[in-house]
Nucleic acid binder design. Structure first.
Lengths: 341, 341
DNA sequence: CATTGGCACTCACCACCACGGAGTGCCAGA
DNA sequence: TCTGGCACTCCGTGGTGGTGAGTGCCAATG
């Protein structure tokens, strides 16, 4: 079956190219992989593969390089799952177990992911929209100023300063606190917002009237703040230094993208649940300038309920199998930790 | 006075080199700056400056380049303060005024600072050690689990989960909350820790005994957590792309340093109060590998009480006057905002 | 018909060389 | 003390030829 061998050739080309960063020729191929055929045969196969668009040569008389389409075929049909070593697994779990709060979990995740993959890692904070309200605390700071603290099921804590029109009364504050919690606690964010809005419309006779409106306003603002849905952590930018060549074409736009969190989020794409890892290769992504970079991402969250996305950004020429297992593993560990908290 | 002219020559060399990134020769110098003397004279001056170690030539028959010592003299004696344009000022203030909480203030500061200087900006979060406790909130999450929220004068909010040995009683919790706040509120962190420790040692008969210890432990932990003193925000890494040449020598180590927050903090150095801007040029810094990068930093905080440091990291060849005023300005604005909050 | 060895061909890469130009150091004269 | 002149140094550029890895094609083979 030549068809099969052609795929074997493609796989060999991808693997060699990823390892050496250099166009791979027919001779080197048969030597390094035991293909059992002569270079000439391989050359014929390569000609076909090139016709079909899976590989190209940078210039005549150079070896072949996989195209985006080639990588695509490779990840779809040719990768064999690469299990993580025990040492790596242990490293991940012990490192992540030391986290003290959500911030810390996220920070450590980027770190471990970037070290594992030797690539740029990106972790999105659990989105507000899928969290439920765990508790609302109102703290008097000054006679006419209080701090509203919003504690969410995911461990996120948001705070807002609230300025009041009238001096604060302890009893009223306690009452307000109680009501707000009765209204919001346990609710999904979206529902909590609408429920709270109702609470804000107090009859002007009620002693709550003066306080409720601004407090509700602040809480609703904190809950629907898009800014906080865009929170992400980035790590491993130093790995970009390894690109060496292709600086302008690859590193520069990527560095710029790393600053633009909105761009990064779009790059990561929709969170996919259930251990599915998404791979976006080169020009498949939404940004032209990043046509030389690939994204390997997956969703994470307790009970495989994808709260947010996490992944790795790197050159199209990357170790897809290894990266995919690393991403999958980290997502699983993070999910477990969020489950416990 | 030749001495004076020599300094003028040095200044001109620095300015030209910063602008063009190329070694500057005697002829170009007299043309671009109205020095009123011939190239030959300038050459003599340059020979002297080279003898004294302020400039070098990369190779014979090339122009001159300032040395670290040359830059040092330049910033110490030759810079004229460069005021910010009105537009810039307005941009800074409006951009920073939109911040909703401390996190946001810090994020926006890095952003504006990196854009202003077109360099990598670093902002340290206000250190815990200099904050006072504003309020402690204890929130029951489950019968045997509560969340301790620590609100500090600087706007920082730290949280810790606390697991208990026995089920929670509302009254006891209220009592504990009251006591903790009485003990800690208003205190400087260090004092609060010791005071709280005292509170933890309850007679075993007291109903508080079971709860106080773990809560106090968690709070003390949050207060003395070194990790949180190392929190910083970094921005503008994309500006590194402009280095172009000198990639290995400058960009790579810097990228690595940006990941190591401890390193960055050491690089920023001690916070200096009262609008004083510190400049560290090349090898003056603590890291050999960063001998091609300079740091321009200053402290910030309400009432010029330096809570933390903020600054810019860039190539030794940078626009010192401009960077210094930008750093000073941002520090001032941030301080003012923290003052109001 | 797939596979193979052979062969001519194509280019990127490197080393070498020549040369123009920017910049210097030095010296003699103002 | 400054200036013009002059010889010198080297970097950068561009052209040239050789080498080698790699290819495509073809005829021969099982």
């Amino acid at each position: 079956m030549q068809e099969e061998r052609r795929l074997a050739v493609l796989r060999a080309i991808v693997e060699d190219y990823v390892a050496t960063e250099e166009p791979v020729g027919s001779k080197a191929l048969v030597e390094r992989h035991g293909l059992g055929v002569s270079p000439a045969t391989v050359r014929n196969d390569m000609a076909v593969l090139e016709d079909e668009g899976y590989i190209t040569q940078p210039h005549t008389s150079a070896g072949r390089v996989p195209t985006d389409k080639g990588y695509r075929l490779f990840v779809d049909r040719l990768t064999t799952v690469k299990p993580m070593s025990v040492a790596e697994k242990r490293a991940v779990s012990t490192f992540l177990d030391g986290a003290v709060d959500l911030d810390d979990v996220v920070q450590r995740s980027v770190r471990v992911l970037s070290q594992l993959t030797r690539q740029v890692a990106v972790v999105q904070y659990p989105t507000l929209s899928r969290s439920t309200v765990r508790h609302v605390e109102l703290v008097a700071l000054a006679p006419r100023r209080l701090l509203a603290v919003l504690i969410l099921s995911t461990g996120r804590v948001e705070q807002r300063l609230v300025d009041l029109e009238a001096d604060l009364d302890d009893d009223v504050l306690a009452d307000l606190r109680l009501r707000v919690n009765q209204t919001a606690t346990g609710q999904v964010i979206a529902d909590a917002v609408t429920a709270l809005r109702g609470l804000g419309d107090q009859p002007p006779t009620s002693p709550l009237a003066v306080y409720a409106a601004p407090v509700v306003e602040a809480l609703a603002d904190a809950m629907s703040d898009h800014r906080s849905d865009e929170r992400i952590a980035v790590g491993g930018a130093a790995n970009l230094a390894r690109y060496g060549d292709s600086f302008d074409s690859a590193v520069r736009p990527l560095l710029e993208a790393l600053e633009e969190h909105v761009v990064l989020l779009k790059l990561l794409g929709e969170a996919t649940a259930g251990g599915m890892v998404t791979v976006r290769i080169g020009a498949e992504g939404p940004y032209e300038q990043l046509s030389a970079t690939s994204v390997v991402a997956t969703g994470y969250g307790p009970q495989d309920d994808a709260l947010a996305t996490l992944g790795v950004v790197g050159p199209t020429r990357m170790d897809y199998p290894g990266t995919m297992t690393a991403v999958r593993a980290v997502a699983r560990y993070v999910s477990r930790i969020l489950d416990e908290a």
